[in-house]
Design a protein around this nucleic acid. Structure first.
Length: 593
RNA sequence: GCGCCCGUAGCUCAGUCGGAUAGAGCACCGGUUUCCUAAACCGGUGGUCGGAGGUUCGAGUCCUCCCGGGCGCGCCA
């Protein structure tokens, strides 16, 4: 048994290790760090995997790529003997690798536990995810929905990798706009304890409007802000009641959305209010800030506009707050990765804030690691007319109305199918159907949000996202539920086939095995790239591969009992990877639908 | 005016740090099938990858310019 084949990990890890060894053996130890470029082959005639390093490396060494590839392939043969056929060199220097069935079976068996092949990250630092970030004086809208869904999914992915995740809801609960609406409500004598969210929203807009029209209103709002900042008891009490109004509505939305986010995650802008003078002071001391037209700014080389961190009237800005937050997150929370899930319009802002933090060294953890600061600039949600989603009356679509519609549409779908006497959901109670319907509707929205490149705008089309065909949430939920149904029909518990010997004689079985073995690598890749749509694409391909398998390979009517058990075990693995992957996306996988 | 992002099939989108003949789903056309199955299946039509140069053994992917669309541009957040 060679050194390589006893190691844990999927095919990519095993092949990478083997080729690193082979490159070092064939070309010298100084080339041990060369990336072997292991990729799944696009075309089955090129094997299961290929190693693509030879062309680039040959150029660097000014040698012939084919000869180099042959040399390394020869050196790899011994290490690969247990897991692959002898590698073949093709084209300009591709090395094609076909894995042995026994090796696939060994690796499948190794992943058949709670890990499903996901290898934990050894990094002990925390990950901070800045998400949701609702403004406490306004109605929540679809932008917050995206931020929350994406942030929660990323949080789940890092948690699966064993990382400590801090979901930070950086509430917009401070600053002049809050003071303006507070002033407005107090002037109007509104009862803040019975205030409803849409009243608050109306008041917010009225306050903005009044202040624009009348400078004296603006002055009064500014005085209110000063008093609030000074900790005036009565005002602070009203401020808290105002926040409570929004938080109650937020709580409800978060429950329906099924995200791991609650009041314990709230750390609004106001949290950092006492730190702001210190931020400006620190930048001045470090000689990184200067006065400019009465304001204090941080300038960047080669950039026209500086970052403003203090106004000429002495007030602070959201950049100041964000800098304080970064410092808290790296120093206090010990995060070496801070991820901001905030829409793309704030790109320039975060670029400047991150650069400022780097200039002063606040991107460092207490043990001296440089933290990675990432902004995920997601695109807008558009209506059918390709402009930002609005209602027919031109209002912004509220988060609540969107979630209500999703639940309704999901429930309609589930009810329609349950009407069929052959359907496993036939005869379920209304409550049960509604519960499944909610999972389908919310799953549809979340999947639509997560399944395309995040930076692109996307058109909100409930008809398309709710269908059971194509790359949709309901399709994956359905694929999962059907596998559950097979076990129910067989009268077999997954545990009954946990020890079954896996057979991969059929090509469809083999393709399914290769697809299953990719799961662990995909999860790691998504954590690295912060692109959840890669997980979606993977799950869809897995479901598609499974569909072909199920079409071509009889499971319950397999020719032998051993084959039946083998295929049931494969079904069980697919079911668990689908459920696991959907869970990482924050999507429920009902047993029936 | 300056800056950033996006542009792939009729539509919605993938495309791995530059790798072999650019892929799915929907729609459309043709065929097969009534099954272990709660999704039918197989095949086909459809592309100057916005355009033009460049780098490279190799470019949808990297560089430059242009076109089109979106967004942003110090004392709001």
């Amino acid at each position: 048994m060679s050194e390589v084949s006893t190691q844990v990990g999927g095919p990519v890890e095993v092949l990478e290790q083997a080729f690193r060894n082979a490159i070092a053996a064939a070309l010298g130890d100084e080339h041990r760090e060369v990336d072997p470029g292991i990729r799944p082959s696009q075309n089955p005639k090129f094997g299961d995997y290929q190693a693509n390093f030879a062309m680039g490396l040959a150029k660097q060494l000014e040698t012939d790529p084919r000869k180099l590839a042959v040399k390394v392939a020869q050196a790899a043969r011994e290490d690969l003997a247990d897991i692959a056929e002898p590698p073949e060199v093709a084209g300009p220097g591709f090395i094609n690798i076909r894995l042995k069935d026994e090796a696939l079976v060994r690796m499948l068996t190794a992943m058949d536990n709670d890990s499903l092949g996901v290898v934990p990250d050894t990094d002990q630092h925390a990950v901070v995810i800045d998400l949701c970030s609702v403004n406490v004086a306004k109605q929540m809208h679809v932008g917050h929905l995206r931020s929350t869904i994406i942030g929660d999914a990323l949080g789940r992915i890092f948690e699966r990798l064993g990382r400590t995740v801090h979901r930070e809801n950086h509430l917009g609960d401070w600053g002049l706009p809050i003071a303006m609406v507070l002033h407005h409500l107090r002037e109007a004598g509104t009862d803040l304890d019975s205030l409803a969210l849409d009243e608050l929203d109306a008041a917010y807009r009225a306050a903005q409007h009044d202040a624009e029209d009348d400078p004296s209103v603006m002055e009064a709002a500014k005085r209110t802000l000063v008093k609030l900042q000074q900790g005036d008891d009565e005002l602070v009490g009203d401020w808290k009641r105002l926040i409570e109004c929004t938080l109650k509505a937020l709580d409800e939305a978060l429950v329906v959305l099924n995200v791991k986010l609650g009041r314990e995650n709230n750390r609004g802008e106001s949290t950092y209010r006492d730190k702001l003078p210190g931020v400006v002071e620190a930048f001045r001391k470090a000689n990184l800030a200067k006065e400019d037209g009465g304001a204090i700014v941080v300038a960047f080389e080669g950039r026209k506009r500086p970052l403003l961190i203090q106004k000429s009237d002495g007030g602070y800005l959201y950049a100041t707050t964000d800098l304080a937050a970064i410092r808290f997150r790296t120093y206090e929370l010990n995060a070496d990765r801070v991820i901001y899930v905030v829409d793309a319009r704030q790109r320039d802002h975060f670029r400047d804030v991150f650069d400022a933090a780097r200039l002063i060294g606040w991107d460092e953890t207490p043990d001296g690691i440089t933290a990675q600061l990432d902004h995920i600039p997601f695109g807008s949600v558009l209506g059918p007319d390709k402009t930002p989603l609005k209602t027919r009356s031109g209002e912004n679509v509220t988060l609540k109305s969107l979630l209500d519609e999703a639940c309704q549409r999901g429930t309609d779908e589930v009810r329609r199918r349950a009407a069929d006497p052959k359907a496993p959901t036939h005869g379920l109670t209304d409550d049960e159907l509604a519960q499944i319907g909610r999972a389908v509707g919310i799953g549809a929205i979340k999947y639509a949000d997560l399944s395309t490149d995040l930076v692109r705008d996307y058109v909100f089309d409930m008809d398309r996202m709710i269908t059971f065909e194509g790359n949709t949430g309901p399709y994956l939920q359905y694929a999962h539920a059907r596998i559950c149904s097979i076990f129910a029909k067989a009268g077999v518990e997954p545990a009954d086939v946990a020890e079954a010997t896996i057979s991969l004689a059929e090509s469809a079985e083999r393709r399914l095995a290769l697809a299953l073995l990719k799961y662990g690598g995909v999860v790691v890749d998504v954590a690295r790239s912060l692109e959840p749509h890669r997980l979606c694409t993977y799950l869809y391909e897995l479901a598609d591969t499974y569909s072909t398998f199920y079409e071509q390979c009889p499971v319950l009517k397999a020719q032998t009992e051993a084959l039946r058990r083998s295929r049931l075990r494969l079904c069980g693995l697919v079911r668990r990877v689908l459920a696991s992957g959907l869970d990482l996306l924050g999507i429920d996988a009902p047993l029936r639908m």
